[in-house]
């Protein structure tokens, strides 16, 4: 969601100039919302909002929210390569690449990276208070944290102040042509393409300024 930075309804940024104003995480049910609220109320304010979500802040002053997840089940086929030696998955005369006129739609919001002044403290909060687990660790930077049982990640790196650095949507396939057809790429907006350090999945990474 975007709004003008002067909109008084926006939550305050964790540090001046940070454009990320709130991260909302989806949960499975109302019982989980109540469990999170009870846990966070041990040392901070938690508010039940009119939209049914709850809101609070993390240890780096990022505003966080939790709601019954809006995620919808969907079925969209992935890429079939028909590499020699594998089962034949793609029928004869079916295209292996998308037409340049195709609309490429991100499948899911999968990852957000935060720069925080205290990486260990941030990791401790999300692991000990919210049940995340560390799935990977970049040397000299920070951990990848994953809430159970999804594949969504958040990543934290050390920086002098709280900041949102990158975010990722998962796409259809590891085909560079998809990336080249994206209008932002054609206009010169920088991005990174690949599976990322998890070595699984496929993501286009947008680096925020």
């Amino acid at each position: 969601m975007i709004a003008h930075e002067s909109d008084p309804l926006l939550p305050a940024p964790p540090s001046p100039g940070c454009r990320l104003r709130k991260t909302v995480m989806g949960v499975a049910n109302m019982a989980t919302l109540d469990t999170i609220a009870a846990e966070l109320r041990r040392d901070r304010d938690v508010r039940y909002l009119d939209d049914g979500s709850i809101g609070s802040i993390d240890d780096a002053d990022f505003v966080i929210g939790f709601q019954i997840s809006v995620r919808r089940e969907f079925v969209v086929m992935g890429e079939f390569s028909n590499a020699p030696g594998t089962y034949i998955l793609r029928p004869i005369n079916s295209l292996g690449v998308l037409s340049p006129a195709s609309v490429i739609r991100p499948r899911t919001l999968s990852h957000v990276a935060y720069f925080v002044p205290d990486v260990l403290g941030a990791e401790t909060f999300y692991v000990n208070r919210l049940g995340f687990r560390c799935t990977d660790r970049l040397t000299g930077t920070g951990p990848f944290l994953q809430p159970e049982p999804s594949h969504a990640f958040s990543h934290r790196r050390a920086l002098g102040h709280a900041w949102a650095g990158t975010l990722r949507f998962s796409l259809r396939r590891p085909h560079r042509g998809d990336y080249q057809w994206l209008p932002p790429y054609r206009e010169g907006i920088p991005g990174l393409l690949g599976s990322g350090p998890q070595r699984t999945g496929f993501k286009l990474v947008l680096v925020l300024r």
Binding site: M1, L20, K22, T23, V24, M25, G26, V27, A28, N29, T32, T35, I36, F66, Q67, S69, V70, R71, T108, L109, S110, H111, V112, L130, G131, F132, P147, E148, P149, S150, H151, A152, S154, A164, L167
Partner: peptide, 9 residues
């Protein structure tokens, strides 16, 4: 806790 993942930014 059953946190599914990111819903919105």
């Amino acid at each position: 806790m059953k946190i599914v993942g990111l819903d919105s930014l």
